[in-house]
């Protein structure tokens, strides 16, 4: 019967739409609730510090090593292309601008999502599965204030620092390869970089980007954990969703932010 098949397909579309709108509404209410608990995260500073330790300090190694290698590879590849145009003193400019504007915030955000975001989701999801969150509610402790808000704000505070460290180590790696290994003049490496990188346009915009990515990743991580189905499978699905959703939102947000920040500058 074709009519019933059409009706079934339409019902499926309707169900999917209602579910996603419901989820969106729940996510919005959840974000507002987390923001309302911002003062309590600051009041219980020790909890937030603990989360900065887990999401920030423990991500240091991967961020620093990746930054160093990204910078060194950029220097090698950039030198290879720039030297064809006789512009190899511009290596510092190339590396600094690509790291500060794009690669620092984006790659640090992606690493942060997979290193810290997935851990946050798994932890909160497991707390929900083992009914620790319900137990807190029974004891009149709000899990949003006690568990979610410190993780959220710890992530927001860690992310810009990690992105800045990534860019710094990247520039240091490019210095090692460009100046020490290849032998570009150190003066023109730093001098051209300083002439081309603008504090307001490049560095402040890069920091704004990393803060936005920090908010996005932390929010997705705590939301997915809090919203996970309380089964072993549900926690694993939620962890996967965190990594996929935060990576995609980082890349999409990066495009939108770049359009607004850097449009028209190079006209």
């Amino acid at each position: 019967m074709p009519a019933s098949t059409v009706a079934m397909a339409l019902r499926r579309v309707g169900h999917a739409t209602i579910t996603s709108v419901e989820r969106l509404g729940f996510a919005a209410r959840f974000s507002v609730a987390v923001l309302v608990h911002a003062p309590s995260a600051l009041r219980r500073l020790q909890l937030t510090l603990r989360e900065i330790y887990f999401s920030g300090v423990l991500s240091l190694v991967i961020i620093l090593v990746s930054g160093l290698f990204v910078g060194m590879v950029l220097a090698l590849q950039g030198y290879d292309v720039l030297t064809r145009y006789g512009a190899n003193e511009s290596l510092g400019v190339l590396v600094a601008l690509s790291l500060v504007r794009e690669l620092g915030p984006v790659v640090a955000g992606l690493l942060f999502a997979s290193r810290a975001g997935s851990a946050i989701t798994a932890e909160i999801g497991l707390m929900k599965t083992t009914e620790q969150l319900s137990a807190m509610e029974m004891m009149a402790v709000d899990p949003l204030a006690r568990v979610v808000a410190p993780r959220f704000f710890g992530g927001i505070l860690s992310m810009p620092l990690l992105a800045a460290l990534f860019s710094t180590l990247g520039i240091f790696g490019a210095y090692l390869v460009g100046v020490r290994l290849i032998g570009i003049d150190a003066g023109s490496f730093w001098g051209n970089m300083q002439a081309a990188v603008d504090f307001r346009y490049d560095i402040v915009n890069g920091i704004i980007k990393s803060v936005v990515f920090g908010v996005a990743v932390s929010l997705i991580a705590v939301f997915e954990g809090y919203n996970a189905r309380p089964t072993a499978e549900g926690v694993s699905t939620a962890t996967t969703r965190t990594v996929v959703a935060s990576s995609l939102s980082i890349l999409a947000l990066d495009f939108v932010l770049t359009v607004f920040m850097f449009r028209g500058l190079g006209v």
């Binding site: 510090l49 500060v100 620092l161 603008d198 504090f199």
Partner: peptide, 28 residues
């Protein structure tokens, strides 16, 4: 550890601003 992390993070932002962005000499 958190203190070390925050300090080197802020040091990295300062490095980017002063050494890379040359904030002190060019005041826009």
């Amino acid at each position: 550890w958190v203190g070390i992390f925050v300090t080197i993070g802020i040091a990295a932002i300062l490095f980017l601003s002063l050494k890379v962005g040359n904030l002190l000499t060019v005041s826009n």
